[in-house]
């Protein structure tokens, strides 16, 4: 269970939001610039809220006026919009970078079916393959929660649907809280157990 209640002042508005995520996929849906990515960054620990609290499985990640748990110790997977694969490492080295259990990674690779590209570099594989590699790389660290920032936005329709199905399949095996940011309503409906509408940093019913 991921719980958060945070406020953070941005340039033109303030984020002021609170929600919980159980072992489900929650979609943060809203226009660009609504503060969705900033909320993910606060959960991951890449930036900090001004006030509030964030807990994951009763572990306190952030609490006002206390020293926040650093990014490296949060154990939260993060899939960036542009995947942020390490361009100077092969796919295999990318996945191994934060790997905890070799057998599990082996299984993930064969479930998703990317054995044939393990020795290639990120600039030598397609967009859909990059997306899959980034997802496996994030799961290889055995995170307690997963954050996805517009993970399918740069894929063509066919690849997007395949990747979305794979995410649902993985989530049915791997029950962790997943928060996904998107501004595609069809995608939000297809993947989200719940959809939270965010506008100007605040939840709308």
């Amino acid at each position: 269970m991921l719980e958060l209640a945070i406020t953070k002042k941005l340039k033109n508005f303030s984020i002021d939001t609170a929600f919980n995520v159980a072992e489900e996929i929650v979609v943060l849906f809203g226009p660009s610039g609504a503060g969705k990515t900033t909320i993910l960054n606060c959960i991951a620990g890449l930036t900090n809220p001004d006030e509030g609290r964030i807990t994951l499985n009763n572990r306190r990640l952030y609490l006002s006026k206390e020293k926040p748990i650093p990014v490296q110790k949060r154990n939260i997977g993060y899939l960036f919009q542009d995947y942020a694969l390490f361009p100077h490492m092969t796919v295999k080295k990318n996945i191994d970078y934060g790997m905890k259990d070799k057998a599990l990674v082996h299984k993930l690779i064969s479930v998703i079916g990317i054995e044939h590209i393990l020795d290639r570099y990120p600039q030598q594989i397609s967009g859909g393959e990059k997306q899959r590699v980034a997802l496996i790389r994030a799961l290889a660290t055995e995170p307690e929660a997963l954050l996805l920032d517009e993970p399918f936005s740069s894929l063509d329709d066919k690849t997007r649907e395949e990747c979305q199905r794979e995410l649902l399949r993985l989530h049915s095996i791997w029950k962790i809280p997943i928060i996904m940011v998107t501004h595609d309503y069809k995608e939000a409906e297809m993947l989200g157990n719940r959809i939270l509408l965010i506008r100007q940093g605040k939840l709308e019913k």
């Binding site: 991951a44 620990g45 490296q72 993060y78 960036f80 942020a84 694969l85 361009p87 934060g98 660290t141």
Partner: peptide, 28 residues
């Protein structure tokens, strides 16, 4: 010259700042 999220990704994967510098920032 490179995307900052590449370093951020390594941090979220549990790598120390020192490791991120030597294995990601410096080679890039």
């Amino acid at each position: 010259n490179y995307d900052r999220n590449i370093e951020n990704a390594a941090l979220t994967m549990g790598a120390s700042k020192f490791r991120v510098f030597w294995t990601i920032s410096f080679p890039l």
